[in-house]
């Protein structure tokens, strides 16, 4: 098989050659058999709660109190008379826009460095993954305060340069920034996925292009990036979803403050669902968030046909 970069531009599939590609669906029964665990799981365990929440969103339902159908009133209230909705949506969008690209770039760069077979690479890889290992544990909020508090290590560091520090986490101007930094710092999982993706790129591609005289930068753009694009696509979508749903650090480290500077959407949702038990209103908030995430994902997947390349049965690569 010839997988050199010249096939990148190769057009859509040639007439189907393979014997099992006769019908539109190559294996309807086998397909359903393979996905049956998920399908059963979805139908039995997830579908009901999911549709229940959609139903709730059209009701006035506070836990332990009778439920009342109110049509779209929850949604109307959210969009017309809920300043907290606007505030938390604003913070969340800011967070998504800042943290997603930064995290992806950091993760990709580090993954490329770590994918080389250098001496001691195992140690570096573990060290760099470490922040993600401690992810949700109790230590992390203590730690972050220890770094960015008034007496934190960060202030001591900048004091060397004669800059007077402040309490970064509890300052309304910088609080969200420290949380974004925390997210970027915990790029380990994203990096690991890139790393696994890089390992799937056959070495001979690089060798062939080296022979052709391509330099590293050309190789990056003509081999690494296209070959990695399905993984990049995956990481991008997951980073966006996770950023929209960001909750933990805002909750634990800043509790939405100061002055609501880190009051993210998921915190507001949580507040409605678990502090006020307004499951109806909270469900409406959840579905709005869902629609926002779906919209963002659709946007990404719409653009993906221009930059994501999948392996196909034609032996080379084609545009999806």
């Amino acid at each position: 098989m010839n997988r050199s970069t010249t096939t990148l531009a190769q057009a859509a599939p040639s007439p189907k050659k393979s014997s099992y590609f006769k019908s539109r669906w190559n294996a309807p029964l086998a397909g359903y058999l393979f996905i049956s665990p998920w399908l059963i799981g979805f139908l039995v365990l997830t579908a009901y709660p999911l549709f229940l929440s959609l139903y709730y969103s059209f009701t006035d339902y506070t836990l332990m109190q009778p439920m009342q159908w109110i049509g779209s009133r929850n949604y109307e209230r959210i969009f017309t008379a809920d300043p907290k909705f606007i505030q938390s949506a604003k913070v969340t969008v800011m967070y998504v826009l800042a943290s997603v690209p930064l995290k992806l770039i950091a993760a990709l760069l580090v993954a490329m460095v770590l994918s080389k077979a250098v001496k001691g690479i195992g140690f570096y890889r573990t060290a760099i993954y470490f922040p993600s290992l401690i992810g949700g544990s109790i230590g992390v909020s203590l730690l972050w305060r220890n770094i960015f508090g008034v007496d934190g290590i960060f202030n001591k560091l900048i004091a060397v340069f004669g800059i007077e520090g402040k309490s970064w986490i509890t300052n309304p101007d910088t609080a969200l920034g420290t949380l974004i930094l925390l997210t970027v710092w915990q790029f380990g999982s994203t990096m690991v996925i890139f790393l696994a993706g890089l390992k799937q790129i056959p070495n001979d591609l690089y060798e062939a292009s080296s022979v052709d005289g391509a330099n590293k930068i050309v190789q990056f753009f003509r081999i690494t990036l296209p070959m990695l694009s399905p993984i990049l696509y995956f990481n991008l979508i997951m980073a966006v979803i996770n950023a929209f749903q960001m909750f933990t650090s805002a909750f634990v480290i800043t509790n939405g403050g100061p002055m609501n500077a880190t009051y993210v959407y998921a915190m507001y949702l949580y507040e409605r669902a678990f502090s006020r038990y307004e499951l109806g209103y909270a469900s409406a908030l959840a579905w709005i968030m869902l629609v926002a995430i779906v919209a963002a994902t659709l946007l990404i997947s719409y653009t993906s046909k221009y930059w994501v390349f999948y392996e196909t049965d034609t032996g080379g690569k084609k545009r999806k």
Partner: peptide
């Protein structure tokens, strides 16, 4: 994909 995107709190 939808199940990935759904905020889990209401479930």
């Amino acid at each position: 994909m939808l199940t990935l995107m759904m905020p889990g709190q209401v479930l």
